[in-house]
Design a binder for these strands. Structure first.
Lengths: 144, 144
DNA sequence: GCGATGTAGATGTATAATGCAACTATATAG
DNA sequence: CTATATAGTTGCATTATACATCTACATCGC
């Protein structure tokens, strides 16, 4: 089977590359007050509860040092607070603060409004399918 | 109509943010010999024929200076060559060289193989739909 | 209990991508 | 012919990132 010549794969590969460019460019100027790293970290913490930098780094495929710096920035801005791990003096979890939650929600609204613009004219079915396929893809991309 | 609370939009927004993270992390270590910027530029030039840096920058939503540097790097590597615009002494187009085409194809194969892995177990319909929806999304994202 | 080894996280340093501002050279308009 | 606009380049600053190293604590073997 000649996978590489599969037309669908060809298209997905190209469109993903383009998507990366476009969405990176779009989100470089922040929507709301949070930059992309901050937004994703807060999103994750909000959804999964407090986690340490190691787990967060794994979740995003980033180096621990990178997340450590991002977390420090978030803490300095009062968006998260450290919650010491009672069983491990080295470790702590990052918990979202009320301020962090408010900023997260504001940024999320701004981003969703942007997406809503881009999905204007799509059918409900297309939107739903797009979300599900992206989710399915992300699941796989995490494991690998 | 409460767009912002549409479940599909909520999911698309989140999954796009995650996708960006994952795919960026994945493509940081290059597949093939070309980095991401080089790959996309060559891809575009191959598909659209020679274009100047201004048009290329617009196509990717990047600053002209950024593309100018990327183009210089491509030229230094012999992947593209400058084609002076006969009607405008300031302008030139970037044309892909044989070497550039070979590298493009090699990198494209490597990337497609990677995508094929990630889409393993998907139905043909899902793959096709994913590609089409990504394309549709990118089209909109370019105009806006 | 204590030394060896492992682990969570922070920090030093280097690199790469990018944007903005200033510049050069050419084109076009009045 | 001068003034202004445009294509592209370059200087500079910023940001995100990885890798290596370091510190503090934990755990394991004895």
């Amino acid at each position: 089977m000649d996978m590489e010549d599969d037309g669908a794969i060809r298209q997905v590969e190209l469109e993903l590359a383009i998507l990366l460019r476009r969405v990176t460019a779009m989100t470089t100027r922040r929507l709301g007050t949070l930059d992309r790293a901050a937004y994703l970290l807060l999103h994750r913490i909000d959804a999964h509860g407090p986690e340490g930098v190691k787990r967060l780094a794994q979740a995003f495929g980033l180096d621990v040092s990178t997340v450590s710096r991002q977390a420090a920035a978030l803490e300095a801005s009062g968006l998260v607070r450290r919650i010491p791990d009672p069983d491990d003096g080295r470790a702590y979890g990052l918990g979202i603060t009320d301020h962090g939650l408010a900023e997260l929600q504001a940024t999320r609204r701004a981003r969703q409004a942007r997406i809503a613009e881009l999905l204007e004219g799509w059918t409900d079915e297309e939107r739903t399918m797009f979300g599900e396929l992206l989710h399915k893809f992300n699941q796989r991309a995490q494991q690998r």
